[in-house]
Amino acid sequence: MANTMTVPVETTSNFINAKHRRRWLISLIGLIVVAVGLTIATIVYSNPMPLGSNGFWKIAEARVISVVVIAVVALSHSFATVAFHTVTANRIVTPSILGFEALYGLINTAAVFFFGALGATLTRGIVSYFFQVAMMVAFATLLYTWLLGSKFTNVHTMLLVGVVMGAGLASLTTFMQRMLDPNEFDILTARLMGNISNASTEYLPYAVPIVLVVVTWLWLNSRRLDTLSLGSAVSTNLGLNHRTELIKVLIAVSILMAMTTSLVGPMTFLGFLVATMAYSIADTYSHRAIFPISFLLGYVLLTGAYFVLRHIFYAQGAVTIIVELIGGLVFLIVIMRKGRL
């Protein structure tokens, strides 16, 4: 290569130019400010006890737990969905398609179906928590190793099998639900709707460290994920063992999804929403830029919904309704304005 002397001094950046980087940074700071504001608001707003009194701290403490739950859920959904999109080289299908939420529904329904109202309490112990998590991770891991070990090495086949199995599990669940008596069905419905204020907080001491470890691992592997997003052929050419990487990341995704689902129940739309909006805002391939934005979006969305429900409508209803309504609208606006995913 002649003329190396005339080559201009340029560097390769994650962002196309300084303007894009600035926009990302402003979004990040803006989201952090909103997140901090909402956290403080959620904890102190309309606390009936005088500031600084014993009762005040008791109420605040209870609310801090909700905030922690929200953080765990937002971390799990955002990291799991982005990593999943990357290794499967698609940006439409989310981990929910793997039959996660269907499996969660089935386990809970089966418990109520076979043991009546007692069954609903049966699924709430620490042992059964780990049982549920292990079931979900095992289910997903088995599916991947089976599918990836066979001749169906393409991701579309795997996703299709996931959809079919998810639908199968869901219809089995519906079948059992039809035969429940109305009281039992009512108890079950409460478990199957994503609900922050009714979270199974006794699992938090286990869920928090596990989620943190998995999320840190994904963060440290960001550059590898950047390359994996180029697809199987290109990442193999660049020296990655694509199949091994795929299985490792999918196991991490399964763990995150199992953690959040057994903590608060299904939140089908959340991951897709925050990931898609994060791609749109960050506008880069770099996971180091995408991950924080998608987590903060999830956190802001959930705390916002929680705050509105709790303090403005005085209802303690399901956060998922607001997430899907507001989030869906915002998502449509972003897509319409940008004209692409």
Binding site: E10, T12, S13, N14, I16, H85, T86, A89, N90, R91, R223, R224, D226, T227, S229, L230, G231, A233, V234, L238, G239, D283, T284, Y285
Partner: peptide, 24 residues
């Protein structure tokens, strides 16, 4: 060759250095 992420020419070529740089 089809990628889900939008890449510039320079970013794409930068990925060619991955075996040597591991992304840095």
């Amino acid at each position: 060759n089809h990628f889900v992420t939008r890449l510039t020419v320079r970013q794409l070529i930068g990925f060619g250095r991955y075996p040597h740089s591991r992304g840095r």
